[in-house]
């Protein structure tokens, strides 16, 4: 277990002074959270990886260019960049729709990277993958609050301000999202266990 952890703001300071190791730590610490945030919006692995790169390029340029605001927290700041890029992408895609397969990937990805199909089928059966699918099925307003609170680590107050609702509405949406996910996961786990141990 990690007993001592350098804070994000300390790592950013070290990075500004030229420590690439500090940046590597920041990336290692947060890449999964940021990548998941993007993936839940764009629903495509390859697009999510492109946008993750774009997010970090922006962050690197801002920090190295001396434009990073020291008062804010690193994670909400960078996930905000990721969120904005994802929403922009999503809006553009809506104007120019592409064919989406049942698993949420684009036809192009399935054709271009056919060797991943066995793996993706395997992952599809995985509990974690199932949970991500269930998040996609949530009503948009609930999904938005869930992503903002759980993955982007915004406070309920910030979410309320950003989405133009009261804090109670934001809390209510989060409650419904979490309880619904829990119920569905329980149903799924029962079915999953029965598959493993047939009667």
């Amino acid at each position: 277990m990690e007993n001592y952890k350098i804070s994000d703001s300390k790592l950013v300071s070290l990075y500004k002074q030229g420590s690439e190791e500090a940046f590597e730590q920041l990336l290692k610490r947060h890449k999964a959270r940021i990548y998941t945030t993007i993936y839940l919006i764009v629903k495509d692995n390859y697009v999510a990886e492109d946008l993750l790169q774009e997010t970090f390029v922006k962050a690197i340029n801002t920090i190295k260019g001396g434009r990073y605001n020291e008062e804010g927290k690193f994670l909400p700041w960078i996930t905000r960049i990721a969120h904005n890029l994802s929403i922009d992408y999503f809006r553009k895609e809506k104007r120019y729709p592409t064919m989406i397969l049942e698993d949420g990937s684009k036809v192009f990805n399935a054709l271009e990277f056919a060797e991943d199909s066995v793996e993706s089928v395997q992952i599809k059966n995985d509990t974690h993958s199932k949970l991500r699918d269930l998040i996609q099925e949530l009503p948009e307003a609930q999904k938005e609050v869930l992503i903002m609170r759980h993955y982007m680590e915004m406070s309920f107050q910030e979410i309320a301000e950003n989405t133009g609702v009261s804090i109670n509405t934001a809390l209510g949406r989060m409650r419904y999202a979490l309880i619904n996910l829990r119920k569905k996961m329980k149903q799924y786990n029962i079915a999953y266990d029965q598959d493993i141990y047939p009667r």
């Binding site: 690439e20 940046f23 590597e24 990336l27 890449k31 999964a32 959270r33 990548y35 998941t36 993936y39 692995n45 999510a48 990886e49 993750l52 790169q53 970090f56 390029v57 690197i60 190295k64 509990t127 974690h128 993958s129 949970l131 991500r132 759980h150 993955y151 979490l178 309880i179 996910l181 829990r182 996961m185």
Partner: peptide, 30 residues
Amino acid sequence: KELIAIKRQLDQSMKSPSDKVTESILNYSK
């Protein structure tokens, strides 16, 4: 208990990007 359980599941279900992407970000910074 329900909330803690689903919160844990959400944390465990996070996806990681490929090593190639991670490398490319590190290389850009360098």
